[in-house]
Design a protein around this nucleic acid. Structure first.
Lengths: 125, 125
DNA sequence: CCGCATCCACCACGATACTG
DNA sequence: CAGTATCGTGGTGGATGCGG
């Protein structure tokens, strides 16, 4: 089976499936949160500390979406002060390997991509 | 080396590298175009036909960005009527395997994600 | 055939302030 | 501590029409 036939996995249904997932994981913070939770259970404030630049709002929103999609579990404790812990579900953990594949590609090629972009910017606007 | 240490590839520099790549490939059409070009050289109109739903504008825009980043090469022929062919560069081809990894995950888990989403929607708004 | 220009709707995201 | 509410904004992408 050629690689071209494999890419039917991507083009398959007109891109519906792949794009459904891209819409899910390709926002600004999702992958970062999933990678951070690979450490294990973390509290809201710990996540907030470990992910530089994220706002409370986006952390809350992204975690809600991840919970809704079954990638992250949320456990609230009835204490004072309140405590909430987040952890990856098995489905969430299964996202890590393909995410690492993508990250590996990123690290390997980001330099030449930016070089090409700079060169193109010189030739044009 | 534990998997947690691997995820440092993602969290590494505060997410700068991984997000630079996500910003590049996670728009609506990039991955679909790259997968389609895995067949080989294709003309503009052939791409337009093979990717259902894409507008001329977005096809042009996305191809320009891919060319700028060195993932796609563009060859224009001085003919009447005009003919332009697009093909993956080696860098562009190298994106296919990680993209397939992600697509594989998508196909494997999209059903349970949507089920979880539906169940969540029932429990809430 | 291939593409650019313009206009416009939407929404992801950030900043800020407030609550149990 | 762990959120919610509200407002403002830039950018993405769709529709349409024109140009080489």
């Amino acid at each position: 089976m050629s690689r071209y036939e494999h890419t039917c996995m991507i083009r398959g249904d007109g891109g519906q499936t792949i794009r459904a997932v891209l819409d899910r994981i390709c926002d600004k913070w999702t992958l970062l949160i999933v990678a951070t939770l690979d450490q294990g259970r973390l509290r809201f404030s710990e996540l907030h500390r470990q992910i530089p630049g994220i706002s409370q709002r986006m952390l809350t929103l992204t975690l809600r979406n991840l919970e809704r999609d079954g990638l992250v579990s949320r456990t609230a404790f009835a204490e004072v002060p309140p405590r909430v812990e987040y952890a990856l579900t098995p489905t969430g953990r299964s996202l890590i390997p393909p995410a690492l594949a993508l990250a590996g590609w990123a690290i390997e090629h980001i330099a030449e991509i930016e070089a090409s972009r700079a060169a193109y910017g010189d030739r044009n606007g």
